[in-house]
Structures are given as C-alpha cells and as structure tokens.
Simulated assay, not measured.
Amino acid sequence: MANEQNLIPNSKRTPSERRENAKKAGLASGKARRKKADLRKAFEVILQADVANPKVKQQLEDMGFESTNEMALAMVMLQKAMKGNVRAFEQIAKLTAIDTKDSLDKKEQREKIKALQLANKKAESSQVDDTSDALEKYFRALGEEVDKNAT
C-alpha cells in the first residue's frame, strides 16, 4: 500500500526512471482516451438505433419524429421537464438555447470594433488635415521667405 514514505519524488529519480515512468503514463493516457472515444462512439450508435419499444416507436412516428433512441430520450426528458423536473428543464435549456450571454458579448465586441474603426478613420482623416495644413503653412512661409530674399 502506498504512503508518504514509499513515494520517491522525481527529483530523486534518475533520468531513465523518469523517462520510463513518463512512457507508462503516456501509454495509460492513450488507453484511457481510446476507451472514452470508443464509449462515445458506442453511445452515438445506440442513440441512432431504432427504438425497441413498439408503443414508444408509434408515439414518436405519430408526432412526426424519427423513431430513434435519441428522439425517445428527448421526449422523456421533455415530459419530465413538463412535470416540473428542474434539472431536466435545465438540460433542455442547455442543449437547445443559444447562449444569449455569448451572443450578446459577441455583439458588444462587434460594436466596439466598429466604434474603434470609426475612431481610427476620424483620427486618420484629421491627421491628413493636420498634415496638409502644416504643409500649406510651411509652403506659405517658404514663399514669404523667398519673397523677402528677392527684394
């Protein structure tokens, strides 16, 4: 049984021991990821399969839905929410609702970007005006200087 006295910190292990442990951890991680991916694929297949219960199948078809386990599960969850099950309602809301906070945040960001672009355009045009004014003053002064030297 592992306890504090049995643990050896990595700083006291040799590089080859650390490499070997990292290899074991990587293999275990890959195995766990594959297992999780396989489970996800199995659920996807099961959810797309036809409903086994003929009564539920007929009920779904009468409502105009596909007679898959996924639709049956959705129907059951909706029925629970209609009976007042708050968790079922929250799950339905989570699955179906567009996250209004995200959409509002994105809209706000778009508006800020537009405002910044307008401000930049105004600043650029005022810089062009300032530059042309400065050039005009410079040439006017230069012309006056030339006129003074000519006389």
Rank of each mutant, 00 (worst) to 15 (best):
E4M: 09
A150Y: 05
E4I: 15
R13T: 04
N6L: 12
T96I: 11
A52N: 07
S67C: 06
D50T: 06
T151R: 12
K101G: 07
P9I: 02
L39H: 10
T96D: 03
V76K: 10
D129E: 12
L142E: 14
E70L: 13
G143N: 14
M82R: 13
N53R: 05
Q59V: 05
K137H: 09
A37H: 08
L60G: 01
M75E: 06
Q48I: 00
R40P: 00
A81P: 01
E124G: 01
A72Q: 03
T131S: 11
I98P: 03
A37M: 09
A49S: 15
L104S: 06
L39E: 12
R19M: 08
T131Y: 11
R19P: 00
V146C: 08
R19L: 10
L95E: 09
Q58G: 15
L27D: 08
I113K: 12
D50R: 11
L142N: 09
N10F: 06
T100H: 05
A25Y: 05
V51F: 02
L27R: 14
S126W: 01
M63E: 10
R13V: 03
A134N: 09
Q109D: 05
K35E: 12
L118Y: 04
F89Y: 06
E144I: 07
R110G: 01
A49Y: 00
A25D: 04
D129K: 15
K23M: 07
M75R: 12
L95G: 09
Q117Y: 05
D147W: 03
K148E: 10
S16Q: 14
G84F: 03
R87W: 00
S67L: 00
N53E: 10
R18L: 12
K114V: 11
K121L: 06
K112F: 02
E4W: 07
N21S: 09
Q127G: 04
A123M: 08
R110K: 14
N120M: 10
A28R: 13
K36G: 04
R87T: 14
D62H: 09
T100S: 11
S16T: 14
R40C: 07
A141L: 10
I92E: 02
Q48S: 15
F65E: 08
N69E: 04
Q59E: 12
D50E: 13
T131N: 10
G30W: 00
I113V: 14
T131G: 01
A2E: 07
I8Y: 02
D62T: 10
M75P: 01
V51W: 02
Q79D: 05
A52Q: 10
A134F: 06
M1A: 13
A123L: 14
M71R: 12
K57S: 13
A115T: 10
A25R: 11
A49N: 09
S125H: 06
K12W: 08
Q117V: 11
A32H: 07
S125G: 00
N6Y: 05
K55L: 08
K106Q: 13
R19A: 15
S11M: 07
Q127P: 01
P9S: 08
D102G: 02
L142R: 15
N10W: 04
V86K: 09
E144D: 15
A88H: 01
A115Q: 13
Q117E: 13
D133C: 05
A72V: 05
K114G: 03
L7G: 01
N53P: 02
K12N: 11
D129R: 15
K12C: 08
E4A: 14
S125P: 00
V128Q: 07
A25E: 05
K122T: 03
E111S: 07
K148D: 09
G26E: 07
Y138M: 11
L60R: 02
A28F: 01
N53W: 00
